[in-house]
Design a binder for these strands. Structure first.
Length: 424
RNA sequence: GACCCCAUCGUCUAGCCUGGUCAGGACACAAGCUUUUCAAGCUUGCAGCGCGGGUUCAAAUCCCGCUGGGGUCGCCA
């Protein structure tokens, strides 16, 4: 068997398109068939190379490898040839330069893997343009000719194509081509119940990449929209998903895209990722932000990443939440200064800095011992000192464990930041 | 409007085919725990079969209608 994904390079790869590609790919892999990528660039005006490059890059980033690739713009003479054949057989006629198919009056039954039989009456259909006046083929015509010639056995596409199907079946029949099986995927809707659009949020796969989503997370979330691996399992990788995949189990109803759940799925994948790989993904972001020089201490960065791994949902979170580990000086908001840097707290910062000065080794364990020693001495609760100190060291009220944080900040900077906060 | 598709917690879903298990899980939300916070983790809770008819001893599940939502009606793809 063979399936195809046929994007049009008139825009970036849409999140819905990515899911169509994903289901095609999973079906191909699960059936040991092949996956064709066909670029539908018949609209010479609107097709752009930058979009094509972006689509290719996104598909590759998502990990959806393809076996063959075609561009419709390189196949115009093929479409012309079949149009001429229909003209000769008088199944089509000319109107100026355009070639138009006569619509036969009949009932068309299509078989859909997801919806079973769908029946249409061509009486409501008009004659179909096959070749436009400018010599380029229409979508349906090129699509049918290519699907037949490329021996596509299953056409898996969005539900918005259901009404195109009877028109295309008429073309298949006119050309004497074998009709493939169809599977129309439910559409993805925005939170407002309408079509997923820029107004509802980001729609391009590349936007999600920029935000710091990982491909494993995107792919996992997308497959959950209309399909389920079963056994109450949700977090799954592509390989396992392919093993469990069944096109018959795809839902008929459209699904609402939830960025919240996407984030959660992404969090789970980041958590599962090994430290090496996660660090590789984060380092470029840190460099871009100016937090790292060309030369840097890789082991130290890894230990910082490790501290936040499991709590970040997108890579950007790390850059925002761990900035204190890279910046020379940190900022504390006026509100936090007022709330946490009380006169008592400032005195304690000095005392803490003094006791840290005495430490030979500044590690998690010794930091904690020293810290708790002071807390006992002052007869206060640990929390009373923990929170102000966290703000003094990181500029944030929340974060990983305080002693791990201190070890990351280091003895010198910890003391410096404590003394600075004491004088604010 | 015409044609087509669809309908389980707010959202994603399991269950539907082959009627009979308190309708299961997840996100979100709420509460509690974790006394070193939460944006992490754990526990608990909240919440659903759109409506009306049938068929049946029995309907989320099968049938019909209604309502609601979506899609398509281009020499765009």
């Amino acid at each position: 068997m063979k399936v195809r994904f046929a994007p049009s390079p008139t825009g970036y790869l849409h999140i819905g398109g990515a899911r169509t590609a994903l289901f095609n790919w999973m079906y191909a892999k699960s059936q040991k068939g092949s996956f064709v990528l066909r670029i539908e660039d018949t609209d010479l005006e609107r097709s752009k190379k930058e979009f094509l490059d972006e689509i290719l890059e996104s598909i590759q980033w998502l990990g959806l490898s393809f076996d063959e690739i075609y561009k419709q713009s390189e196949r115009f003479d093929i479409y012309r040839k079949y149009a001429d054949q229909l003209l000769k057989e008088e199944k089509a006629y000319r109107e100026g330069e355009a070639v138009i198919l006569k619509m036969p009056q009949k009932e068309i039954k299509i078989y859909d893997l997801i919806r079973d039989e769908i029946v249409f009456d061509t009486a409501v259909l008009k004659d179909q343009v096959l070749m436009k006046s400018d010599g380029s083929p229409t979508y349906s015509f090129a699509c049918v000719v290519d699907d037949a010639l490329m021996e596509i056995s299953h056409v898996i596409r969005g539900e918005d194509h259901i009404s195109n199907t009877p028109k295309q079946v008429v073309i298949y029949e006119a050309l004497g081509f074998k009709i493939p099986k169809f599977a129309h995927l439910p559409l993805i809707m925005g939170e407002d119940g309408g079509r997923l659009s820029k107004r509802t949020g980001a729609v391009a796969v590349s936007d999600y990449k920029k935000m710091g989503f990982v491909p494993e997370g995107i792919v996992n979330y997308l497959m959950l929209l209309g399909w389920s691996p079963g056994a109450n399992q949700e977090i799954i990788n592509l390989k396992k998903a392919v093993e469990k995949f069944s096109i018959k189990k795809i839902n008929k109803a459209s699904a609402v895209f939830s960025i919240e759940k996407l984030k959660w799925v992404n969090t789970q994948h980041i958590r599962q990722m090994d430290l090496e790989k996660l660090t590789d993904l984060i380092v470029p972001l840190l460099k871009e932000k100016g937090y790292l020089e060309a030369e840097f201490d890789r082991k130290k960065v890894e230990s910082i990443v490790n501290l936040f791994k499991g709590r970040i949902s997108i890579l950007e979170d790390f850059v925002d939440w761990a900035d204190f580990a890279f910046l020379k000086e940190i900022d504390v908001s006026d509100g936090d200064k007022e709330k946490f840097f009380t006169d008592d707290a400032k005195k304690r910062f000095k005392l803490l800095a003094d006791s840290f000065e005495k430490l030979e080794v500044f590690d998690i364990k010794l930091c904690e011992e020293s810290f708790r020693g002071l807390v006992d001495e002052l007869k206060i609760k640990a929390a009373d000192l923990v929170h102000p100190v966290r703000v003094a060291l990181t500029g944030k009220t929340i974060g990983p464990g305080l002693f791990e944080t201190m070890a990351i900040v280091g003895k010198e900077n910890t003391i410096k930041r404590l003394r600075r906060a004491a004088n604010l």
